[in-house]
Every structure is written in C-alpha cells, then in structure tokens.
Design a protein around this nucleic acid. Sequence first.
DNA 1: ATGAGGGCATAAGCTGCAGTTATGAGCAGC
DNA 2: GCTGCTCATAACTGCAGCTTATGCCCTCAT
Lengths: 284, 284
Amino acid sequence: MELLLAVARLGSLGGAARELGITQPAASSRVRSMERQLGVALVDRSPRGSRLTDAGALVTDWARRIVEAAEAFDAGAQALRDRRDSRLRVAASMTIAEYLLPGWLVALRSQLPDTAVSLLAGNSASVGERLLSGEADLGFVEGVSVPAGLDSAVIARDRLIVVTAPGHPWARRRRPLAAAELAATPLILREKGSGTRQVLDAALGGLARPLIELSSTTAVKAAAVSGAGPSVLSELAVGEELATRRLVSVPVADVALARDLRAVWPTGHRPTGPARQLLSLTRG
Amino acid sequence: MELLLAVARLGSLGGAARELGITQPAASSRVRSMERQLGVALVDRSPRGSRLTDAGALVTDWARRIVEAAEAFDAGAQALRDRRDSRLRVAASMTIAEYLLPGWLVALRSQLPDTAVSLLAGNSASVGERLLSGEADLGFVEGVSVPAGLDSAVIARDRLIVVTAPGHPWARRRRPLAAAELAATPLILREKGSGTRQVLDAALGGLARPLIELSSTTAVKAAAVSGAGPSVLSELAVGEELATRRLVSVPVADVALARDLRAVWPTGHRPTGPARQLLSLTRG
DNA sequence: ATGAGGGCATAAGCTGCAGTTATGAGCAGC
DNA sequence: GCTGCTCATAACTGCAGCTTATGCCCTCAT
C-alpha cells in the first residue's frame, strides 16, 4: 500500500523502495505480485521510471485510506505505549480519544517528530484527577461541566444528530423534526448512562424512548445502517456514513443536541511547549 | 486487527480464531505480541472467555477504521480483478469509483455474497460507450449531461464546498460568501479540464482564479489542510477532514456548486437482478 | 559513438515469522 | 469427578519476502 503511494509520489520503483528502506527487487516483486492478484497492470514501467496506470491510480486512492487509518492507529498505539518518560502526557475522555485524538497525534507528529506522547483514556472525572495529580499535562473532556480546579477552552462542538437509513420515511423529510416528535419515537440508543444518552435525555427532558439499547456506538451505528430505526449519534461517529449515504441526517428543530468538547488544564498552568502545540492543532 | 474485532464480538480468543480460520494458539500469540508491542493489556483472559480491556476497546475502535478501509479496498480490488464472467459489470466515472463504489460493493457483497462484480472506470463518455456496447450492465456518471441513448436516475448530489484550514479568516465567517468574492480570490484548484474545475468554472462563469494548480484531489487537499489557501472540493472528498476539523467548510451564497450523480443504463433496459439491487443500495 | 548512470527484471539463497500440532492447566456445571 | 469450555506453552515447519548479484535497456553527456 505505502509502496503504491510512494511510487505515485516519486515516479520510480527504486526510489519508492529506498524510501521504505527496502531494496528495489523487493519493491518490484511486491508490485508484481499485487498486479498478478488483481489481474491488472498498476504501473507503467519504462526504462526511465514508472508511472501509475489509471487502474493503479484508482487502487492507490483506495489504498490511501487504509494507509491513513493505519497512521492514525499507529499514532494512537504509540501514545498508549509511551506511558512513562514522555514529553507530553494527555488524558482524554473516550469519544475524543476514539475519534479525534489519533488525527491530532498524526498532525502533531508531523510538527514535532521527536515528541513522545502518552495517552490515558477515561471519563471526565478521571481526566480531572490525572491533571490535578500531575499525571497528565493536558486533558480533553466532553460534556457540560468542567471538573473543579481546571481551566478550559472550548475546542469544538459535538453535535448529536438524528440519523436514519436512507430508506426510512424521515430520510426524505425536509421540515425539521420537533422535539416532541423525537421524544415520542422509539430510537436506537446507547445504554442509559452513556455520554450521548445523557445529553439526549437532558435535551428531551429525560424522555428518550429506546427501541433497542446497545452497549457500543458501533453496534448502534450498525443497527441504524441496517434500517432498524432512527438513532441519535455524535456527528463524529457518523461522518463517513453520511458522506457515503449509508446514513442520512434528519433535520431537527428546537432541540439543543450539542455538547462542547473542551481542552482542560490545571487552573493557572497554561499549557506550554508540546501541550500548547497540540492545543493549537485542535483549534487551528 | 480483524482478530481484535472478532474477540470483541465473540468474547473468546478461540472463537475468534475459528472465525478467521486459524488455530487458537495462533490467535493467542498474535494478541500477545500486540500487547507486548503496546505495553498494555488488551484482553482480559479468564478460563471462561476473554473480554477487551478499556485500552483494548480503544485500540479495537481504531483498528475498526483500518479494517473497514481494507474491506472497501478489497471489494474494489475484487471488482477490478473479475473482468470476465462476472454477473454484474459496472462502469463508473472516477469520482464515483474512487469514493462511493467501494462502499456500495461492500454493502452489495453482504446482500449477494456470491455475485462477482467487475468494474471499469473511465470518464462519462466511456461509461456511455461501455453500456451501449454491452460491456457493462450499469453505469454511474457525474456531471451535467447524460450521454445519449441512456436512461438515468439521480442517486445523489455532489456538492462542491469551499474549504479552508481552520486558521484561515474565512473559517470564522458566518455570513455566506458571495460568488463574486469567491471568483475574486485565488484558490487551490485541480488543473483546468478536471470535473470539479469545470463545475466551478461554470458556476462562476469561467472566472475561477488559481492560486496553485495541482493534478490530483489528494494534492489539493493536502495543500488546503496545510493552510496554503482556500479551495473548492467535492464534499465526498473532504468528509473526514471536515469531521476532524482539519478543514472547515465556508458557507457560500448564490452559487450553484452542485452536480448530480446519476446511475445510467441503456434506454429501455431497466436494471434487473444484481444491477437493480446495487441501484437500490445507492438510493436507499 | 561510447560509456556512465539510472531504471527495471530475474535468479538463487537465506531467514524469520506466523502458522501448525500436541499437550497441559484452570475453571464451571452436571 | 468427569466433561467441556477456556487459554498457555513448547517444539517443529514451511513459505513469504527479503537480500545480494547480475544483466539488459534506455538516455544523456561527453
């Protein structure tokens, strides 16, 4: 995969091989075996370099998504590994750790390649404790209240959105859904007590009706995609499903389905150094 | 990766191993070596099964993205391979082949596991030719006009959106951008002649000013993310960047930056069988 | 023209990893 | 206590993918 991207970038098998720290025959044989598997030529080899064919460009674009996901995974994995002796220790609540942090870490790595980052994931309260006990330098929490003793800055809003499979009647709806209507409809939801469920219950006045209760965001998404019914999910969780129209967002009126995502740090100790850098990444 | 997902799903290393067609010791050792690499326990093993730890759940969620990207890649790759003797032969223009088709193929595969699909990617004209010559059963094109001799159905709209890095002044803008303002500002663009460029030029009356011209959507995105300037891109291309706020969308007034995405087939020959199934997937 | 240099392919050999089989141990429930 | 599930450990094995070594082709500069 990376090899294809490198070939696209450098226009040469040997060059790409060098970049990945392997030898030219190894690169050549990899590409060859991939072409054999697909039954399609991916690169045009000429005595003065190699270019991707049309099919190669398509495959490379598909491959790029895998590589990017792998980079994010790797950045996150590094952070889990580096427990001790890291220059920057981050504590984050689950949603942020899950959806946003890997991307930030990738970006941070490109700016400060030698900075070891460690990550502790937990709920808002535990993020607060880590910061106050000095176990973490910078925290990220979602939700309404900021733990005591911390300063904070809002870095983004996480909107909860109502989604359905494209086949559902609501998918064609143009007039926004009223809060009462949402409250009256059985929804696919996380179990009571989860962060998104709390926000939803608060917004509707504790009235959300479960159609099914599932214990993970993924399970909820899968149920919604399969058309089991409407659901309410963080827009972070469904970005890709919306883009490919596996899910459709339903407009909603007069319901405050948003929560702030905040960076937090001990009162008075403004983030400096790598923490400052990371913080600035999260706001742009 | 898949192994982690399977463990999460089945609650047992051995069960996960069986599902992946490997033996239990192999699975055990894989997980073990991953835990060694990360320095964190991923699964809680007990004599009556295994559950993911908190860290394991986090890692698994990150891994899921890779696996999904890989599935899409695989579905696309299959389709490139199956040239001959496929039950369903699809022709698609590049944007659709790049961003949407892999997802559709994954969904189709789950509905019709044994249907071999082949894919021919090209521009609108070549899609038309393939259909008329009987080389393809169903086509997908983007753009304003439908090639002659074909019936079509609009399956989605592809909106072009103005994006900037979060640091750019436009990112904070609330008042929509006027067309004139957009036309007057140098933009990061694809080269003249590309599909998105054509739509943009048409919408602005041929006036788009390039700040830089780049030859691939990826390069344009990278430039925009790095803050080189504003750009205009398909929302399909920037879904993930928007969700993670690496890019921000700028509201635009009075410019028709949309194009229809259409399914097409030879006039009179309504899609049947797997073609119909695929078509219905694309609309929900 | 000719030789140097960069690009790719092929062949042969080596190595390590990821898998296998085989076995044992812990715990639950009948 | 037996059966059946879980997981761990150990020793063996095979093959995928690498490296090194070489050759050919083309281009460009001398």
